[in-house]
Amino acid sequence: MMIKLHMNENPYSPARSIQKAAIKGLENVNRYSESKFLIELKKLLGNYNDTSSERIVLSHGSDLLIREIINIFSKDRKIIMVNPSFFPVTQYALKQASRLTRIQISPPDFKLDSNLLLKELNEPTLIIIDNPNNPTGKFMIDKGFAEKILQKKDVLLLADEAYYEFSGQTFASMIEKYPNLAITRTMDKAFSLAGLRLGYLIMGDCFKDHFPDFLTYLSNPTLFAAIEALKKPEYMTSNVDKILSEKKRVEKELLKTGIQVFPGNANFLLIKTKILDFGKRLNDEEVNIFNLSDEWMEGYYRISIGLRKENDVLLSAIKKICNDDKNRNL
């Protein structure tokens, strides 16, 4: 069976209690979700992020929220993004933005030049930054730099923290102080709910005005599962710990093969190899990783961290491909 390591999913299924909650949600799928459950979920997310539930907006996927923000704010503002970035959002911005500036980050450090970004903030701007960045896994901005940006009243900052639970870095504590800050999160990744699609926005006051009645009727299975998952976050944290520990092991083993690994802060690894058709050859070994050559540069691949046994198959397939390649070149 194909091992899926190409979409940054959590390899651990939701806990039994969460699955049961989702199944319970199916009982009434002929009805729209009740607002009391939406309110409960927002309250739980408020507590989880140490903020008011009024600052939370729910959606089936954080990318939909980012799109909505692009729709609302791009008419009279320039958008600044990093390149590369989360590809579906980039594609949407390219299509919708009236003005778009992308700042290219380059190997090996993939560092965002803060002075370069600050120089661009001379007009009303919406900055959209995934932090950590996808596909590099690198932090683009830290709190100090975020504050510098947020002191500019004409600038809105949207930080996509889809991988917060893995990276441990968030700007959520700054949301009360800075009205021009918004954060998108997801329960798809660390909470193992990718198939149910639960994204949310934590918004500063500037954004609140534009989302006064953004009441989303989430599906009941999603709603019930998310509520249950947030009531017992220790299942999620234990999985995150296991994934991060596996990530270290996979990184160490990959380095032994001679493949270039770029350490990051999420549940995936960015690698670079000169081996031709690397992705296809792994696919032949029943392992699917994300080949970045379509949207980005040749030779770069993103590998999600799987279960230990899946990672073992991945590593053994990579070692085989590397050995074959060495023998071929002898």
Partner: peptide
């Protein structure tokens, strides 16, 4: 593109 730019080293 139209009003689209990339800053690169």
């Amino acid at each position: 593109g139209y009003k689209t730019e990339t800053i690169i080293e």
